[in-house]
Design a protein around this nucleic acid. Structure first.
Length: 466
DNA sequence: GGGGCTTAGAC
RNA sequence: UUUGUCUAAGCCCC
């Protein structure tokens, strides 16, 4: 019970003091060798850089940290206290605030995840650091790494897996790291940073952020593992850390596709995959001190139905070859959302409903367009039109209104009267010929119904050549 | 090429 | 209420 209470909030707690004695000797040694190069700190604290950092934090509209300061309030505060803040950072006695602990439910409903929310000011500083570190580390990263990286997307990652699958890599090791962000080893990470960052003051600042602790019921608790899931710097640090795995595998000639902590190791045979699962596990646990979830990490056939899932996609195989599909879970989630959007929401106009559906599907297709789903979208199109007809029919409510509206839309009087007074179910009516001839596709389109299969084709065309 | 806003998705 | 990075689409501005 007590141990459970102690389980950290995105960062592991330290049961004892905030010990960092182990670091000191290494640090002192490194510091001496690297006192020549300075300037990174200056670039971080540069006016333009800080300004860009603040804008980024502001446009996220994120919630306040432990001090309750909002992004709006931070602007005048920073203007007022900028010089003092920058001076204390430069002189090395700035002390970041602990992160605010917040538990939020996972999107799929399975359990909760813990966030560590830094104060707005700390988010600005971390962002400023990240902006300068990113270009320094980008060139070091592996070709197979796609998460949190500029110019790289999940679509590129799944396409890469597809390419390998076509080249005889039929098996995948799916590696699931439990609580990856929470279990990064500080000393290991700092040593990786020291190799590339000559400015000791920057290292010390990052170290302070790693050790800044979490606030829980008014009590600060130190952190000796992990990086706060919520800090702007954390994604980059996560990549720097797992880059060691990428590089090690690359040197062994092993193909790895990685998106953040979602790792896929490819193999040409099941036996090779089994061996790679074991060797990956050894490296991740012994060398990187991470915890592999042995239940969820497994070897699967890439093209077997339902087995391989990566970034919301799956791969399939037919006579023509390997193809990308939307994973059934993602399809189910989207269908559920569409149902919700088109169900009798209190008094929304049909136009508004169609606008909401449009916005949702536009974004959804913008992500999943790399998957082959022409038929699925055509099916959804039929279904959604019928849902909209049902929605409109329900809004007419009274038999009198139904008769009048049907007539207005070109249905002969006798038939309008018959259908206006029918006792058939809504779904039946929505699919009837009478409703198809009155609330026509053209009229739906005119009212703002979104032709998303066309958008899908357009996007595919756009990205297939150029 | 840059900037603003909104939405969607991955982690 | 719920943090962060990245990507995409749509609209708008230079």
């Amino acid at each position: 019970m007590k141990a459970e209470y102690r389980k950290g909030c995105r960062q592991r707690d330290s049961v004892e003091r905030e010990g960092d004695a182990g670091a000191r000797s290494i640090e002192a040694r490194e510091g001496k060798e690297r006192d020549g190069a300075e300037g990174l700190m200056e670039r971080i604290l540069n006016r333009e850089n800080l300004n860009r950092a603040y804008k980024q934090v502001k446009r996220n509209h994120g919630a306040p940290g432990i001090d309750g300061m909002t992004v709006e309030a931070a602007s005048p505060w920073l203007r007022e206290n900028r010089d003092g803040l920058l001076q204390s950072i430069r002189e090395g006695h700035y002390k970041p605030s602990p992160v605010r602990c917040k538990e939020i439910p996972k999107p799929d409903g399975s359990g909760t995840r813990k966030l560590g929310i830094p104060t707005v000011v700390d988010r600005v500083i971390q962002q400023a650091i990240a902006q300068q570190l990113q270009p320094l580390f980008e060139p070091l990263f592996s070709e197979g790494s796609y998460g949190y990286r500029p110019g790289r997307s999940a679509q590129q990652a799944i396409r890469k897996v597809k390419t390998y699958a076509e080249q005889d890599y039929g098996h995948a090791v799916e590696i699931d790291l439990s609580k990856y962000f929470d279990t990064l080893n500080h000393e290991l990470l700092l040593n990786l940073l020291r190799k590339r960052i000559p400015d000791k003051r920057v290292i010390d600042l990052i170290k302070k952020y790693l050790k800044s602790g979490v606030m829980e019921n008014g009590v600060r608790r130190a952190t000796e593992e992990g990086s706060p899931q919520g800090g702007p710097l954390s994604p980059l640090l996560a990549n720097i850390y797992l880059n060691e795995f990428d590089q090690e595998m690359e040197s062994r000639g092993v193909t790895v596709i990685r998106y953040a902590d979602d790792i896929v190791v490819l193999a040409k045979s099941r036996r090779a995959a089994e061996r790679l699962l074991e060797s990956s596990r050894t490296y991740l646990e012994q060398k990187l001190k991470l915890h592999m979830n042995t239940q969820k990490s497994k070897v699967v056939s890439i093209v077997a139905q339902k087995h391989f899932k990566f970034l919301g996609f799956a791969l399939g195989k037919n006579g023509k070859g390997v193809y990308i599909r939307v994973h059934r879970q993602s399809l189910a989630k989207a269908k559920k959302k569409l149902k919700e959007l088109t169900s009798r929401s209190q008094g929304r106009k049909a136009r508004q409903v169609m606008e909401n559906v449009k916005v949702y599907i536009r974004g959804w297709i913008g992500y999943f367009y790399v998957a082959d789903m022409k038929r699925i979208l055509q099916g959804w199109n039929e279904w959604l039109r019928r849902r909209m007809r049902m929605y409109i029919w329900k809004q007419w409510k009274k038999p009198r209104t139904k008769v009048q509206n049907l007539q207005k839309l070109g249905i002969p009087e006798w038939q309008a009267y018959q259908w206006g007074n029918t006792r058939l179910g809504y779904w039946r009516i929505a699919g009837s010929a009478v409703l198809n001839r009155s609330v026509t596709n053209a009229r739906l389109a005119q009212a703002g119904y979104y032709d998303f299969p066309a958008q899908y084709e357009r996007l595919r065309q756009l990205h297939s050549n150029g």
